[in-house]
Write a protein that binds this DNA or RNA. Structure first.
Lengths: 228, 228
DNA sequence: TTGTGGTGTATGGTATACCAGAATCCAGCA
DNA sequence: TGCTGGATTCTGGTATACCATACACCACAA
């Protein structure tokens, strides 16, 4: 009896065309190295609507959302441009990230379950042994996962929401190398200290460690990354 | 020769219909006590477009933006609803505010000009003498101005941008009384201490004072405000 | 009286046609 | 050869008509 029913169309349905256009565009921008020399930074509504096979209306709504999020900039009668963040803007984003995650750490010492904190070890230990893994780019993702985990422990969805937006912009900077290399070893030490502060439920120390850790990244980017 | 040209329509021009609809809607929502008992929480695209005298298209774009900012919620084939924030969401917003402004205070100790810090006294002293003014609602606005001033000193536009959004939502809670009353006197003392920490360029102290000040407000709201 | 099924209606979603301004290109003149 | 001006074209902005679905209401049967 169970198989007599025809399960139709679990393809990509359920979402509005706007939502699908939004996802597709966001992914496309993410997978594109917008900081490369001759990158195509201009979009065309009509061209996109043809390529997606939808009309301009839902596409425009998706673009308007991306505009508000700061991924693209819509200029009346000029065009739609993929936004290249300036170095100053990147630094500001890292600063906000530091502010929010350090607060998250503080909250985590109050609200996180002990076993949830213990699970952080998994994310840290995975790379503390493996010299090679640290340099494969895997670490970059794992690093973000660690930070997102701390934010999750804070039980503050708004912090998670805002930082997710920030992380997206960071990912768009293809030069992830910044986050890796020699910094990885130091980073892992920092992470271990952070976990230990959380386990000790030491709010001030956890907050300070997270803040200093992230602001160090900020200074590193400030010194060694060239943009603009 | 100068007056021979007819300067037409400096009314509300220059902005797209979308932008004007957005402003008008935002203002309308702000000036409406959405937490009152029988508040009209549902909007209708066609009705609004008629009343504004524009078509649905720009209006929808404005509404979509308000949706993304969390002021309204658009539900497919159901309607558009003005969002009432839950108490938990309000508390989270204050938490994020605390995180960002305390970071702003830290940055201010590094980047703010001395005379700019000195100007904070104006905002504080204005109410320290005047017992009456503290209870007129004026203080609520001046209070926000003080906090915005500190954020301005940080020279971090992103922090300003995010907190502005938060402040808007706070304002929408008409029960501003929370921010005033007996809290005003205590608040002014806090503010004076914050200014003094900034003047001393004491980053840690400034950050801590701002954080504790705002988190105290959070606890106050947690205890004494009933929503939902 | 109560439950159920079908139909009507209201609402947001989408497609499309047209508008207005900005940029570009090229003819024509100095 | 270089510059100027106007026409054309390309772009996002706006208006409007139509589509699909969630919900309500009502007729009808148990």
């Amino acid at each position: 009896m169970a198989d007599t029913q025809l399960k139709i169309a679990p393809i990509g349905e359920g979402l509005s065309l706007k939502a699908r256009a939004y996802d597709a565009l966001k992914l496309a921008i993410l997978n594109m190295n917008i900081y490369a020399e001759g990158a195509q930074l201009r979009l065309d509504e009509r061209d996109l609507s043809q390529r997606f096979g939808v009309s301009r209306t839902p596409l425009r709504e998706a673009l308007a959302q991306l505009d508000q999020e700061g991924l693209v900039k819509i200029v009346a009668r000029r065009g739609i441009f993929i936004v290249r963040k300036t170095k100053a803007e990147i630094l500001d984003m890292i600063t906000v990230w530091a502010a929010l995650e350090s607060m998250a750490a503080r909250l985590a010492t109050q609200h996180a379950e002990t076993d949830a904190i213990a699970r952080l070890h998994t994310l840290v230990d995975q790379f503390s042994q493996d010299e090679a893994a640290r340099n494969t780019g895997e670490y970059s993702e794992a690093n973000i996962k660690f930070h997102q985990a701390i934010i999750g422990l804070s039980k503050c969805p708004l912090i998670a929401e805002i930082t997710n937006g920030l992380f997206f912009h960071m990912r768009a900077i293809r030069q992830r190398t910044i986050f890796e290399q020699d910094r990885a070893r130091r980073s892992i030490v920092d992470h271990k200290e952070i976990v230990s502060a959380l386990e000790a439920r030491d709010a001030d120390r956890a907050e300070r460690l997270v803040r200093e850790h992230t602001l160090r990244l900020r200074d590193h980017v400030d010194c060694f990354v060239e943009l603009d």
